[in-house]
């Protein structure tokens, strides 16, 4: 995406006051993280700290490994046979890759919203109730469904059609349904993998608004291709890039810079970050 005609500064200036980076509780502490798919290293040497009740944005060109890193936080990479994760990811001090850790339990605490809305071919109600049901919750499912849909800003549109198929919703509604489904199990963290890439600007605006609203209760990590989006919603931003590595010419992802969103977009330390956000590269 070209940044030449899209200045990031107005988006940033509007919200100077609400970017509140306080050094509070650390949720994730990532050290020396590397992910390889069989012999190909997708990304290496990632060190990051994710803080509680903040929105952290991962930006960077395609193929830089930002989604791969995101999937390390809820062990979704386990589902890809060829993926191997090295280094450590501490979640409130517990190593997520400790052999004693059950990835299923991890995923109940750390929810995920995908790039393409993926509602189950079930009713709206059953979509939201899915997570609580498999967690063995039987009491007050109606309340959970109403609460989750309300939080995701979908209640008014969905309340009269809870029993109809979720596939009848529009793309933007489906994505809000997926957010409602993820928060129905009361997770601690919400991972969002380019949640707005298939949505129009109005639907995108609603999701961003929603993120700002739920930020008080959840720690959010969002992967995005849209730099304005990162500037509009995030408190901290990590910029990744892909570099040609070694004689084989393989591209390998790298974390270039990780800082407050304000600093990244107005005064980046690394010239590669500067080149990317000003549209000279990527």
């Amino acid at each position: 995406m070209s940044m030449a005609d899209d200045d990031i500064r107005p988006a940033l200036a509007e919200r100077v006051d609400d970017i509140a980076v306080t050094d509070d509780v650390e949720v994730f502490e990532v050290t020396g993280l590397a992910v390889r798919y069989d012999e190909v290293t997708a990304i290496s040497e990632v060190d990051l700290t994710i803080c509680e009740r903040e929105i952290t944005a991962f930006i960077g060109p395609s193929g830089c490994g930002k989604s791969t890193v995101l999937r390390c936080f809820n062990r979704m990479n386990d589902l890809i046979d060829s993926a191997h994760v090295e280094g450590s990811v501490l979640y409130h001090g517990v190593d997520l890759y400790d052999p004693r850790v059950d990835p299923v339990v991890v995923r109940r605490r750390i929810g995920m919203v995908f790039q393409k809305p993926n509602p189950f071919p079930k009713s709206i109600y059953d979509n939201i109730a899915y997570g609580p049901r498999i967690a063995g919750i039987k009491a007050d499912l109606d309340g959970i469904v109403e609460q989750s849909l309300t939080r995701a800003g979908l209640w008014d549109e969905a309340k009269d059609r809870l029993r109809t198929s979720a596939l009848g919703l529009s793309g933007g509604q489906q994505q809000r349904l997926c957010i409602a489904r993820a928060i129905a199990v009361s997770p601690d963290v919400l991972l969002m993998d380019e949640p707005c890439s298939s949505l129009d600007p109005i639907a995108t605006g609603r999701i961003e608004e929603l993120m700002r609203e739920i930020k008080n209760d959840y720690t959010i990590i969002i992967v995005t291709h849209n730099m304005q989006q990162a500037a509009r919603v995030s408190d901290r931003t990590a910029f990744f890039t892909a570099e040609v590595h070694g004689p084989t010419g393989q591209r390998r992802g790298r974390l270039v810079e990780f800082d407050n969103t304000g600093t990244i977009f107005s005064n980046p330390a690394d010239e590669r970050t500067e080149a990317y956000i000003t549209g000279r590269f990527g």
């Binding site: 589902l79 299923v104 995908f114 993926n118 509602p119 899915y130 997570g131 498999i134 489904r181």
Partner: peptide
């Protein structure tokens, strides 16, 4: 679609 399976896994199933 695998997307549906991933959606289910991500909810802790």
């Amino acid at each position: 679609p695998d997307d549906l399976r991933f959606g289910s896994f991500a909810l802790g199933s």
